[in-house]
């Protein structure tokens, strides 16, 4: 009944709900929503990256004991170097043994001389093997959860080597994480506001259409047409317009989003981001798939927002009509 006789009940919903008003408005709302979703997605990625990255990393600097503690050893000779190396090795092995048995670590990695060299060359301007001072051993710890290193592990490490330096970067990373989460929350709030405004716009358009069709609706109601019948007639029209508006808004948002992705990709956790400079096709392969799916879903979301807000306003209006 609802679909078969749509043109023979006298309800001219096409005229009562003209597309030239609703489609551009919904398209504009969808465009904004697409930007909000992209922003929320970027915020989520950033928060995830920070919480799983820098926040869970602890750097251990293990200086050789006897060099730092004994001023007389500061003059380098062959016997001291041998002693230094053996002490350093013993201390390091103990630490590695301790870290291997620790349950609070996801993993740890001792930086090789080559890696340290690569890291320090820009500052030292020479190879560390030719450097007069001995360079501390560096171990990168990855904690299992985004927590701080336990006092027990810290004390055990200090017991092996009291001069060990433990650098935990979670103070700033936690704050950055909070900032990223706040940005994400703001994006979701803005998305909610945009959705709410879209629903209000649809509701106002529906109310105008209902007033235009009031006489026919009253006659239909008096002939026994249910609230559901009338609401479906309006909801189908508005949902269709919202769907079309959704597609237009989504399509218009794509070029801007591609440009923003191009700008922000170097900050992402994607290790292959550098290939964006190799050409458009390479760039397109790096686009987040989830986000593309989301933009396909946007018009469908609009359809349901259109349907639900129209149905609610029609039911409300009909209850006040009779």
């Amino acid at each position: 009944m609802l679909f078969k006789h749509k043109t023979t009940d006298g309800l001219k919903v096409n005229l009562a709900l003209p597309g030239h008003f609703l489609i551009p408005l919904v398209a504009a709302m969808t465009f904004l929503a697409a930007l909000m979703i992209a922003g929320a997605y970027a915020g989520q990625n950033l928060a995830h990256r920070w919480s799983n990255g820098a926040a869970s990393i602890v750097i251990l600097q293990i200086p050789p004991k006897n060099i730092i503690n004994s001023p007389e050893n500061s003059i380098s000779d062959t016997s001291t170097i041998v002693s230094d190396n053996s002490n350093k090795l013993a201390s390091l092995n103990q630490i590695i043994e301790l870290l291997s048995s620790s349950k609070e670590l996801a993993s740890f990695h001792k930086l090789s001389d080559q890696e340290i060299n690569q890291l320090l060359t820009p500052w030292l301007h020479e190879d560390i093997n030719h450097f007069a001072l001995s360079i501390p051993a560096i171990i990168e710890l990855h904690l299992k959860q985004n927590t701080i290193i336990s006092e027990k592990l810290k004390n055990s490490l200090l017991h092996i080597n009291p001069d060990i330096i433990i650098e935990q970067s979670n103070f700033w990373s936690q704050r950055l994480n909070i900032l990223a989460n706040s940005l994400q929350s703001c994006a979701f709030l803005a998305l909610f506001i945009v959705t709410f405004i879209a629903a209000i716009v649809i509701a106002i358009a529906t109310r105008t259409g209902l007033i235009q069709c009031k006489q026919t609706i009253e006659i239909l109601h008096n002939l026994g047409a249910s609230d559901h019948y009338i609401s479906v007639r309006f909801a189908r029209r508005n949902a269709f317009l919202a769907f079309i508006g959704g597609w237009i808004g989504s399509i218009f948002s794509i070029p801007l989003l591609l440009f923003l992705t191009y700008l922000t990709l170097p900050f992402s956790s994607n290790p292959n981001w550098e290939i964006i400079y190799q050409g458009w096709f390479s760039f397109l392969t790096l686009l987040p798939f989830n986000l593309l799916i989301l933009f396909l879903i946007l018009p469908l979301c609009n359809y349901f927002i259109g349907w639900i807000s129209t149905t609610l306003i029609v039911y409300y209006w009909l209850r006040h009509l009779t």
Partner: peptide, 23 residues
């Protein structure tokens, strides 16, 4: 209280259509 944009036929048939009767 006839619906002006419907033909005479459709005006008369309306109650039956609202009852979902066979065409």
């Amino acid at each position: 209280k006839l619906i002006p944009n419907l033909t005479i036929y459709d005006n008369i048939a309306l109650p039956l259509r609202l009852q979902n009767m066979d065409e």
